[in-house]
């Protein structure tokens, strides 16, 4: 009959096994992550990427570089629904044709009719002129541009172009900021956008140091919201990481 082992006797510890398994697990997980990352490698992230200069290019015909520039014109608004205009009824007149009698004298009002002809002509002229004045001017832009574009130049990711366009429309800064200071102004704003285009939050992450300018750039983003819904491939990124705007005058 053997002597029962003492409770105080040294027993093998499970710790080395646990540490070994844990280390092995870590190594395998890292190796798997590296392997999967290599197999399903996405586009390489460029940490030194240059900022996006995005604007929505307007659909149109490129302008001849030899011509003098024209000011950017607003894209025409969508055609408004034509409403029926109530027209006042002309006063009732005697439309019956009068039969001249035998000894009837020539109607002196014939001359007036000529006058009426002139009036008619001038009316047509007026219509012609109105027609010419109303002819929409051909917008300048790019042949593959967008009908909603507001710029004749530059191109980037289309959605960022839209963001740029709406924020820029609200980018109003006080003229009282003096010229010398304008040259050094630069502010960065970070914002996150929800799946429906709503502004989740906006923060001034790099202030310019000028209160007027900083409040103007924050105001530009807030006034521009809500934005249009982001495309599928940008939704999660815009909600999680957001997008930065770097404002310079």
């Amino acid at each position: 009959m053997s002597t029962p082992a003492s409770l105080l006797q040294d027993r093998p510890s499970p710790l080395p096994i646990f540490v070994g398994l844990s280390t092995l697990g870590h190594v395998l997980a890292v190796a798997a992550w590296l392997l999967l990352g290599w197999v399903f490698a996405g586009p390489k992230v460029d940490l030194e990427q240059t900022p996006i200069k995005a604007s929505l290019v307007r659909l149109g015909k490129p302008r001849d570089q030899k011509l003098l520039p024209r000011k950017e014109e607003e894209a025409p608004p969508p055609a408004a629904k034509v409403e029926e205009v109530a027209v006042a009824k002309p006063p009732a007149t005697d439309t019956a044709v009068k039969i001249p009698s035998k000894d009837a004298k020539p109607d002196k009002s014939a001359e007036k009719k000529d006058g009426a002809k002139d009036a008619k002509k001038s009316l047509f002229d007026a219509f012609n002129k109105t027609g010419k004045a109303g002819k929409p001017q051909e917008l300048e832009g790019a042949a593959d541009g967008d009908p909603n574009g507001d710029s004749a130049k530059q191109e980037g990711e289309r959605y960022y172009g839209l963001l740029n366009s709406v924020v820029k429309r609200n980018y109003d800064v006080s003229s009282t900021i003096d010229e010398a200071e304008r040259r050094r102004l630069r502010a960065e704003v970070a914002l996150r956008i929800g799946h429906g285009g709503e502004l989740i939050d906006v923060n001034l992450i790099k202030p310019s140091g000028n209160e007027l300018f900083d409040s103007a750039v924050l105001g530009a983003v807030k006034k521009a919201a809500p934005f249009s819904a982001p495309p599928e491939h940008l939704r999660d990124s815009l909600k999680k990481n957001g997008v930065s705007f770097v404002f310079t005058p």
Partner: peptide, 18 residues
């Protein structure tokens, strides 16, 4: 670690009279 926000540059402020 690699999360990155796209950066959009905006210039051409509408200098608005006060």
């Amino acid at each position: 670690v690699l999360a990155q926000r796209p950066v959009i540059e905006i210039s051409g402020a509408n200098f608005r009279p006060m």
